[in-house]
Amino acid sequence: MNASAQAPVTTLPPLLAHGEVRLSAEQIYPRLFDAILEQRLAPGSALPEQALGEAFGVSRTVIRRVLGRLCDQQVIVQRPSHTARLAAPDPQQARQILSARRLAETTLITLAAQRSRPTKIRQLRELVARERQHHEQGQRCTAIRLGGEFHLKLAEIANNAPLTRFLNGLVPQTSLIIAQYEARPCSHCAWQEHAAIIDALERGDGEAALALMHQHLDHIEAKLDLEG
């Protein structure tokens, strides 16, 4: 029996609200990602297209698009002729992902400080406002996902395509790691640190933005228990 066949399968309940119209792949992606971060799907779980299609009330073709995006971000592992399964980074892999992310982020924040414009600053603030709202409503996993989107928006502002593609795989994996290994709550919320980074970018203070990014990544790593 292959490894994917042995992976645990979590049966999802219907994920369409009463009277809700059929969802697109773009609408399903955040819902499925949030379910993953909430650990309604255990690390290593198989993600059969048929079961996911039934849960969301859509065809397997739509689900394939969602799984393809998650595969590109390395949140799921998908091999030819095998059922997709959720990634399960071990502590050593988690440390490597965090180290690689720090290298990418510290370069991208310097570039973003040089290229930020009022329109981009406004988009960042709108994203952080949503992150704060979900945090204050106790929707931790949605806030984690939106926090990741904040970092990807920074990469977009930096306008370095290879680094952006690199970070596009690291940030979602970090969200997965936070959901799996977070043990110690941080004294500062991520949205507050994101807001401080935006303030530095708006002032055009690249050195402050870089220092704040290092501090933010330090806090992410400090709240993880990777020793068990």
Rank of each mutant, 00 (worst) to 15 (best):
N2G: 00
A5D: 13
Q6E: 14
P8S: 09
V9W: 07
V9N: 04
T10P: 00
T10V: 09
P13R: 11
P13D: 12
P14V: 12
P14T: 13
L15Q: 13
L16P: 00
G19D: 12
R22S: 14
R22V: 11
A25H: 07
I28H: 03
P30H: 11
R31I: 10
A35D: 02
A35G: 00
A35F: 00
Q39M: 11
A42Y: 01
A42V: 14
P43V: 04
G44K: 07
P48C: 11
L52Y: 03
G53D: 06
E54M: 05
A55H: 05
V58I: 05
S59V: 04
T61F: 06
T61I: 13
V62R: 04
I63C: 04
R64C: 04
R65S: 14
V66I: 05
L67D: 10
L67W: 07
R69A: 09
L70M: 15
D72L: 11
Q73L: 02
Q74R: 14
V75Q: 06
V75G: 02
V77C: 11
R79N: 11
S81I: 04
S81T: 07
T83L: 14
A84F: 02
A84M: 07
A88I: 03
P91G: 07
P91R: 10
Q93L: 10
A94V: 05
R95M: 06
Q96I: 03
I97G: 01
I97E: 05
L103E: 13
T106K: 01
T106I: 13
T110N: 01
L111R: 12
A112W: 02
A112S: 03
S116V: 15
K120P: 00
I121N: 02
R122L: 14
Q123L: 14
Q123T: 05
R125H: 08
L127C: 13
A129E: 13
R132E: 15
H134D: 10
Q137N: 09
G138A: 09
Q139H: 13
R140Y: 08
I144E: 07
R145G: 04
L146K: 02
G148A: 11
L152E: 15
L154W: 04
E156V: 01
E156T: 10
A158T: 01
N160E: 11
T164N: 05
R165D: 14
R165K: 12
F166A: 10
L167H: 02
L167S: 10
L167C: 05
G169Y: 01
G169K: 12
G169C: 10
V171L: 08
T174P: 00
S175E: 15
L176A: 04
I178K: 11
E182D: 09
A183N: 05
R184S: 12
H188P: 00
W191Y: 15
W191G: 01
Q192M: 12
H194I: 12
A195E: 15
A196E: 15
I198Y: 07
A200D: 09
L201E: 08
E202K: 05
E202P: 00
E202T: 02
G204Y: 10
D205E: 08
L210H: 13
M213R: 08
M213Y: 03
H216V: 04
H216A: 06
D218W: 08
D218Q: 08
D218N: 14
H219W: 10
K223W: 09
G228P: 04
G228F: 07
G228E: 13
